[in-house]
Amino acid sequence: MKKHVINAIVENQPGVLAHVAGMFAARGYNIDSLVVGRTEDPDLSRMTIVVKGDDPILEQVRKQLEKLVTTVRVRDFKNVDYVERDLLLIRVHARADKRPEIVALADLFRGRIVDVSRSSVMIELSGTEDKLEAFIDLVRPYGISELARTGLIAMPRGKTSADRDE
């Protein structure tokens, strides 16, 4: 089962999320993550959906999404070069003696310390899902007290001149 990233531009209206989520539930598709946010157009929102499944499933998901009346545009990133980002907030147990190690780790991953208390630090980190997973694994031995992730957002890369020639 492969991971697929799909972008859906939808109307920014009440009930739209219910239409999309309901369709996924009714058709039995598994959503890894679903992120909704505004776009440059106040009437439209962008949903970034990560689903797992083989190619025929992805094809059906895309078609069923397109079929929803409130969905304006659907794009799957199967054959597209794209940038993906996930944002992580994580609070790690960090007594004074361990703190420098954790800060160093965060630095390595280009994370930022956003909160410090006597017994813990909170780190903000963004990147691909793999990068966040790797970081989480590394700090796990210190003890994770809380963790929150936004889920994946993604956008295709701008076309290079080489692409345009094709």
Partner: peptide, 8 residues
Amino acid sequence: IDPSSISK
């Protein structure tokens, strides 16, 4: 007429 019927 419904693309989602194709190859479903």
